[in-house]
């Protein structure tokens, strides 16, 4: 596979893992500017590990990660934030003892200028957060915590956002709303790479998708084509 020029984010034949055997065995994926790209696949496929590899949290033993054409393989996470990347991990993605507002402030830690205006913008996307700005994030519901986590990542004004299962554990209503927010964030010109278990709904809003299994690429196509693919449907979309 070759990496198209002008990619926002590119993983090129990435091998790596947590010290022992490689979890990722030649993962390749790209996000073009303005795209929503969804990664689906069974549990333990290496979806979270791929995101961590892109964000300098898992050692990339072989292969390359690039952001806007610049090689960022194994860069430290805080440097990637400075460069314009944001990451919302799957779990433990808020600071529980900090208030909602303080969580958002931390997102702007590297670049506090104009923080108020940015925070107001985020309160515009997630009005619920404005109501609960003084509440400790750890005391909020799962759906609200997910909003805090996304808001925190957006405070750094990233051009690329990595979301690891943003709808995990949410009620159907919140799942719906979360996907709407993701589309809204994407419309601001932010490229999105998202891992999702609610694969059908996620592919419905995606420009493209990848199916990952056992640390390798299995399928790659546009959202609608993946949804229409019989084999993908049988194996990964629950029939």
């Amino acid at each position: 596979m070759t990496i198209p020029a002008g990619s926002l984010l590119a993983l090129d034949n990435v091998y790596g893992g947590y010290g022992g055997v490689d979890i990722l065995r030649g993962v390749t994926m790209t996000v073009q500017p303005g795209e929503i790209v969804v990664i689906i696949g069974p549990n333990g496929a290496g979806k979270s590990t791929s995101m961590k590899a892109a964000f300098g949290l898992v050692n990339v033993r072989e292969g390359r990660v690039a952001f806007e054409g610049r090689d960022i393989t194994n860069w430290r996470a805080d440097r990637l934030v400075k460069l314009g990347m944001g990451f919302v991990p799957q779990e433990h993605n808020v600071f529980p003892s900090l208030t909602v507002q303080e969580n958002l402030e931390m997102g702007a830690y590297l670049n506090p200028k104009g923080m108020r205006a940015r925070m107001d913008k985020i309160f515009g996307i997630f009005p619920r957060l404005a109501e609960r700005r003084r509440q400790a994030a750890g005391l909020m519901s799962g759906g609200e915590r997910q909003m805090v986590a996304m808001g925190r990542a957006l405070m750094a004004e990233p051009r690329m956002l990595l979301l690891d299962e943003p709808t995990a554990g949410l009620s159907p209503l919140f799942i719906e709303q979360t996907f709407e927010r993701v589309v809204e964030i994407n419309k601001l010109g932010i490229g999105i790479l998202m891992v999702e278990q609610n694969a059908k709904q996620a592919l419905a809003i995606a420009h493209r998708g990848y199916v990952l299994a056992m640390g390798e690429n299995r399928f790659e196509d546009t959202g609608p084509n993946l949804l229409a693919n019989r084999e993908v449907a049988e194996l990964f979309l629950g029939g």
């Binding site: 805080d78 433990h92 808020v94 600071f95 529980p96 303080e102 830690y109």
Partner: peptide
């Protein structure tokens, strides 16, 4: 606040920048 954030979750603090 960053000190409190680090004491909550060091990995998330790094990811936050």
């Amino acid at each position: 606040k960053a000190m409190r954030a680090m004491s909550d979750n060091m990995d998330l603090a790094r990811v936050t920048g």
